[in-house]
Design a protein around this nucleic acid. Structure first.
Lengths: 174, 174
DNA sequence: TCTACTGTACCGTCCAGCCGGTACAGTGCC
DNA sequence: GGCACTGTACCGGCTGGACGGTACAGTAGA
């Protein structure tokens, strides 16, 4: 089937996230978001009554994707650890973009974004910890995942980072 | 000797960093920075001709602290690995604050900040890699450090994170 | 007719940067 | 010592533009 054209509402959320990720929160203005989505400012404010509304909607969409991600992690054929690490290297997926966007919002002292991210992190940790039966190792792997994320979002990505991590983790044979 | 009162110039840089770290780049306006430093906006602009100037000065100060940090890491009694991990858990030091502030600036697509951070990271990696003689392990440890940083700056800190990392690294007996 | 917009015209506030001024500690010179 | 002047450190009012948000009239398609 042909890829369905996303709704204007989703295009606006996509544009908001993309601006946050690629240019930071100062560039994510209503005018810029509307422009990037190919919509007028009036059109944006038709769908979202305020910037806060836009943030809420973005976080809701992220939570939904988060639930699907946790489920996928639990049932991943390569196991949760490898699934987690792989998806921590920014694949450019919609979920990754949403996560980074939420982190940007959280940095501006936004509790909603902070809480949403914290909740997700707890779930990831729970799956890792449950699977490994080793809290220290689960914590360490989550830290490595955080590092991979941080590097990607800061432009410090090393092409062989994931390979190196796998190499080291293999020595621990858990 | 009594603690010397920092110069107005340094107070302004401190205030700029603190605002970036605690409230994000949107709050780090010239008015807010001046106010937080107990100076008028005119006073701020006497010392720094523009916001760009303020960023340049902040990065210069960070680079100086960075050189001292790399030197300290090389000669640390507990070894560079532990030194690196310990200082990755935000101690609230001036250097930590500068690093986080620079990361915030870098997120707004600022090449100067991005390059300054990248240069520092290369040096940290070089010391780790040299000391360990193991690129994969050095990379992994740097990722863990990045994760510790990311968590701290995002409010996700786990009190026993460092302890857990030490536990896992001990199993690798390098 | 209803939904989903466009486009324009605003408003009040915030923001970066500019500029005229003030205070005051020196410094050179008669 | 007295005067003229310089440089440093700062104040605070102002401007032009950006920003979030409001209001509303119009329109194209289902």
């Amino acid at each position: 089937m042909p890829a369905e054209e996303p709704s204007t509402r989703d295009k606006l959320l996509d544009a908001f996230e993309t601006l946050l990720v690629t240019e930071g929160s100062r560039s994510a203005t209503l005018d810029n978001v509307a422009g990037a989505a190919g919509v007028s400012k009036g059109g944006l404010l038709y769908h979202f009554h305020s910037k806060d509304d836009l943030v809420d909607a973005m976080l809701s969409r992220m939570r939904e994707m988060g639930e699907r991600d946790i489920a996928a992690m639990r049932t991943a054929p390569q196991g949760p650890v490898d699934y987690y690490l792989e998806t921590s290297v920014d694949s450019g997926s919609a979920f990754d973009r949403a996560l980074i966007a939420a982190a940007r919002i959280a940095q501006e002292n936004d509790e909603r974004a902070g809480n949403a991210l914290a909740a997700l992190r707890e779930q990831w940790f729970a799956v890792l910890s449950e699977h490994l039966g080793d809290e220290a190792l689960a914590r360490t792997i989550q830290l490595i995942g955080d590092g991979l994320y941080f590097d990607d979002t800061s432009g410090f990505t090393h092409p062989r980072a994931l390979e190196h991590v796998r190499d080291v983790l293999a020595r621990l044979d858990f």
